[in-house]
């Protein structure tokens, strides 16, 4: 039976106007990715400064310069609807690569912040 699980992967942005890349390995029994969501501990910095590229198993789902605000959901969105829907094929041994770029636009002061990528997955009970 397939279970629905939500995974969270974090990166820390410690320098202004820099890019941060990190690769995350999904559990082997995750068979499908159904949605993505980007949040932060400092929403305003992510909203005004962030762009990212997201690849799953080397397939590009969101290209470079895709603004983070387009993948964020505010508190007005129902919890069941917060994830940006995507659909992957049978991915087994999935790898997610997140390349985040921080760029100042003059409306926010920089301080270290965390960017979290939430992943809505379907997981097999046992291997």
């Amino acid at each position: 039976m397939l279970k629905i699980v939500k995974k969270r992967y974090d990166i820390q942005v410690v320098d202004a106007n820099r890019s941060v890349s990190k690769t995350f390995e999904l559990d082997k029994n995750i068979k499908r990715v159904k949605g993505l969501l980007v949040t932060s501990d400092k929403d305003d910095l992510l909203y005004y400064r962030g762009t990212q590229k997201i690849e799953i198993n080397n397939q590009e789902y969101f290209p470079e310069n895709y603004e983070s605000k387009l993948l964020m959901s505010g508190v007005n969105v129902s919890p069941n609807e917060r994830y940006y829907k995507i659909d992957t094929d049978n991915i087994g041994n999935g790898i997610i690569k997140l390349s985040y770029i921080d760029a100042d636009d003059g409306r926010t002061g920089f301080t270290t912040y965390r960017v979290s990528l939430y992943v809505d997955c379907e997981m097999e009970d046992e291997l």
């Binding site: 305003d44 605000k69 964020m72 959901s73 505010g74 969105v77 917060r82 940006y84």
Partner: peptide
């Protein structure tokens, strides 16, 4: 409320 806390999905 601000856009980064209350925006709907885009």
């Amino acid at each position: 409320p601000q856009v980064f806390t209350h925006q709907m999905q885009t």
